[in-house]
Simulated assay, not measured.
Amino acid sequence: MSQLSITTTQNVNINFNTANPGERALAYIIDAVIIYAYYLVVFEVIFPLTGIQDFVATLDPWSEMAVYGLGGLPVLFYALLCETFLDGQTVGKMLMKIKVIKIDGYQAAFGDYLVRWLFRIGEVTPPMSIIGLIAMIINKDDRRLGDIAAGTAVISLKSDVTINHTILREIDSNYIPVYPMVIKLTDNDMRIIKETYDSSYRQADFEMMEKLKNKIETVTGIKSVSQSATTFVDTVLKDYNYYTQNM
C-alpha cells in the first residue's frame, strides 16, 4: 500500500494510504452486482408487471431502444451520482472503506467527479479495464488516468492517517501566529476541536471539517483568510499552542 502526501497552502503535510488496485477492483465488482440487480428488478420484474414490456413490443426498433435506454439511465450515471452525493464514494467504495479526494486537500467537486466518470468508458468499463489497471500499477499513487486528469486520488479509510502536527507539538521559535482571537477558546474547547479534527482526517470528512471551521469562526469571531477548512483548523490549533506556550 503506497502513501499519498498532500501539502496544503500552509505547508501542512498530510499522509493518506492510497487504495490499492485490489480494493478498487472489489469495490467495482460490488457496484457491478448492484447494477446487475437493478437490471433484473427493472427489466425482469417492473417492466412485465406494469405492462411496459408489452407496450414496448408494439414499438418500432428505435423507439424500443429509447425506452430501454431510458430505463438504464440510472446505471449509466451510477458512479457519477453516487460519488457526487455520497462525498466521493459509491456503495462499493463505502463497503471497501475507500474514498475519492482531491490531492490538494480540498473537497472534490462535481466537476472532478465528472472528469473521472468520463474517463471510465476508456479505462474502467470492460474490456478496457486493463488500461486503468496498468495506469494504477505504474503510478506511484495508484491513480488511474481519470484521477490524474481530475486531480483526485482514491484513499483507504481503514488505516490511521498520520498528521505531522498536533496541539501537543512544540511550535518553532520563528512561528508567526495568524489568529490572536483563539485565546477566547478554552483547553476543553481545543480538546474537542482536536478530536473532531483528527476524526475528520481519518475519514477524509471534508464536510465535517467545514462545519468545524464555521463553528470556530462563530464562537471566536475569527474571519479566516483564504484557506481551506482543513488548513484553517490546523492554523487555529497551532496558534492556540503558540499563545498558551508564551503566556
Rank of each mutant, 00 (worst) to 15 (best):
Q3Y: 14
S5P: 05
I6C: 05
V12S: 10
V12K: 06
N13I: 04
N13C: 02
I14V: 09
F16T: 04
F16M: 05
F16G: 00
G22Q: 00
A25T: 08
Y28L: 07
I29H: 01
I29A: 03
I29V: 12
Y36K: 02
Y39H: 09
F43Q: 03
E44R: 06
V45T: 07
I46T: 08
F47A: 06
F47P: 13
Q53V: 04
F55A: 14
A57F: 02
T58W: 00
T58P: 04
T58M: 03
L59M: 06
P61N: 10
W62Q: 08
E64A: 12
A66C: 00
Y68K: 02
Y68V: 00
G69F: 08
G72C: 05
G72P: 03
L73E: 11
Y78W: 11
L81W: 12
F85D: 05
D87S: 10
G88I: 06
V91W: 15
K93E: 11
K93G: 11
M94P: 02
M96H: 03
K97G: 10
I98Y: 05
K99P: 13
K99G: 11
G105M: 01
Q107A: 07
A109F: 06
F110Y: 12
Y113G: 00
L118M: 13
L118F: 14
F119L: 13
F119S: 14
R120V: 02
T125F: 13
M128H: 10
I130L: 13
G132D: 05
I137K: 01
N139K: 00
N139V: 04
N139R: 05
K140F: 10
K140S: 14
D141Q: 13
D142S: 09
R143Q: 15
L145T: 02
G146E: 03
I148G: 08
A149I: 09
A149R: 09
G151F: 12
T152M: 06
A153E: 12
V154G: 15
L157H: 00
S159L: 08
V161S: 07
T162S: 09
T162F: 02
I163W: 02
N164K: 03
T166Y: 14
L168V: 04
I171A: 13
I171G: 11
P177L: 00
V178T: 09
V182G: 08
I183P: 03
I183L: 06
I183T: 15
L185H: 03
T186H: 10
D187P: 07
D187G: 15
N188K: 07
D189L: 01
M190I: 14
K194G: 13
T196F: 12
D198W: 01
S199D: 14
S199W: 09
S200C: 15
Y201C: 14
A204D: 12
D205K: 00
F206I: 01
M208Q: 15
K211N: 11
L212K: 07
N214T: 07
T218V: 07
T218F: 14
T218I: 05
T220F: 09
I222A: 04
K223P: 03
K223V: 14
S228P: 06
T230C: 01
T231A: 15
V233T: 12
L237V: 13
K238G: 08
K238V: 04
Y243Q: 04
Y243G: 07
T244W: 02
N246Q: 15
